[in-house]
C-alpha cells in the first residue's frame, strides 16, 4: 500500500502535473482511516517532496521537516485532588476549550535544534504552548495545569512528539509514519507539513484526512447519542433475552 502510494506520488512528480505553489507536495497513505471492532491501532504514512518554486529554484538547503497532525477539538477539564477535611477531594481545576483531542509533532531533528522558541511557538509546535492557548479558566496555577494536561494526554497516547519521526529518502523527498492508537478520536484530521531551512520556514502545506469508526461500534455509538431512548430500551431487551436464554439453556 505504502509503496504503491509512493510510486504514484513519484509518477505525479515526474510527470509534473502537480501544482506546486507552496514549495512542498504531500500525500497520505490513506485518506480515510476506518476503526473496526478489533481495532488496536493503525499506521498512517505521509510522503512529501520539497519542490522548486515558479522560477525553478529550490529554497536553500539543507532542510528540516516538521509534520503536525491535529485531531478534532474537544473541551477538557483537568482536576487536581487534594486532602480536605481528611478526605481526598477534587479541588482545583483548569478548563481547556477547543483543545485538539489528538496532536502529533514529528520532526527530522529535535525541535530545539531546528528553530527558535518563538518560531516554534508561532507554528504551534510545542505541546505546552498548545495547552496554554486552549486554557480558558483555572483556579490554580496555569503552568502547573498546562504541564499536567500535556502529561495526561501523553499518557493516553493522544499527544506525542517524535524528534526522529520524519525520514529523508533523498535530499528533498521525505516520509513520516504516525501510529494512531486505538482510542484515536473520530473526525477530521489536519496534517501540516512545515519545511525549515536555517531556522526559517521556507515552505508549508496542509492536507486533511478522516478517522471514522465503522461497523457495529459506529452504529452503537451513534444510536447511543442520537436515539438514546431506543438505545436504552434495546439494551434492556437484549438483557432480558440473554437472561431468559440463559435460564432456558441451563434449566435443570
Amino acid at each position: 500500500m505504502a509503496a504503491r502510494v509512493l510510486l504514484a506520488l513519484l509518477f505525479a512528480l515526474v510527470a509534473g502535473g502537480v501544482a506546486l505553489a507552496q514549495g512542498v507536495v504531500t500525500a497520505t497513505s490513506d485518506p480515510t482511516i476506518r476503526v473496526q471492532s478489533t481495532f488496536t491501532g493503525e499506521t498512517i504514512t505521509l510522503f512529501g517532496n520539497i519542490e522548486p518554486d515558479a522560477a525553478g529554484e529550490l529554497p536553500p538547503g539543507p532542510y528540516d521537516v516538521v509534520v503536525v497532525l491535529r485531531g478534532p477539538a474537544a473541551d477538557r477539564v483537568v482536576r487536581q485532588k487534594s486532602r480536605q477535611l481528611g478526605l481526598i477531594l477534587n479541588s482545583d481545576f483548569a478548563l481547556y476549550q477547543s483543545l485538539p483531542s489528538f496532536y502529533r509533532v514529528l520532526s527530522s531533528r529535535p525541535l530545539s535544534a531546528l528553530a527558535d522558541e518563538e518560531v516554534l511557538e508561532a507554528h504551534a509546535l510545542t505541546l505546552e504552548g498548545l495547552a496554554d492557548r486552549a486554557l480558558a479558566e483555572t483556579t490554580g496555577t496555569a503552568d502547573t495545569f498546562d504541564a499536567e494536561l500535556v502529561r495526561l494526554m501523553r499518557e493516553e497516547g493522544l499527544f506525542a512528539t517524535d524528534p526522529r519521526g520524519v525520514q529523508f529518502l533523498s535530499p528533498t523527498l521525505f516520509s513520516a509514519r504516525v501510529a494512531l492508537p486505538a482510542n484515536v478520536p473520530n473526525g477530521s484530521f489536519l496534517a501540516r507539513t512545515i519545511v525549515f531551512s536555517n531556522g526559517e520556514v521556507v515552505a508549508q502545506r496542509a492536507s486533511r484526512f478522516f478517522v471514522r469508526t465503522e461497523g457495529f461500534e459506529r452504529f452503537l455509538a451513534e444510536s447511543a447519542r442520537d436515539t438514546p431512548l431506543l438505545y436504552g430500551l434495546a439494551t434492556v431487551l437484549l438483557a432480558i433475552v440473554t437472561g431468559w436464554l440463559g435460564g432456558v439453556l441451563f434449566r435443570r
Partner: peptide, 12 residues
C-alpha cells in the same frame, strides 16, 4: 493520597 492527584475528563 492518590499516586496521581491530577485527572482529566472530556466535557460533553
Amino acid at each position: 493520597d492518590p499516586a496521581d492527584p491530577f485527572s482529566m475528563a472530556v466535557l460533553r
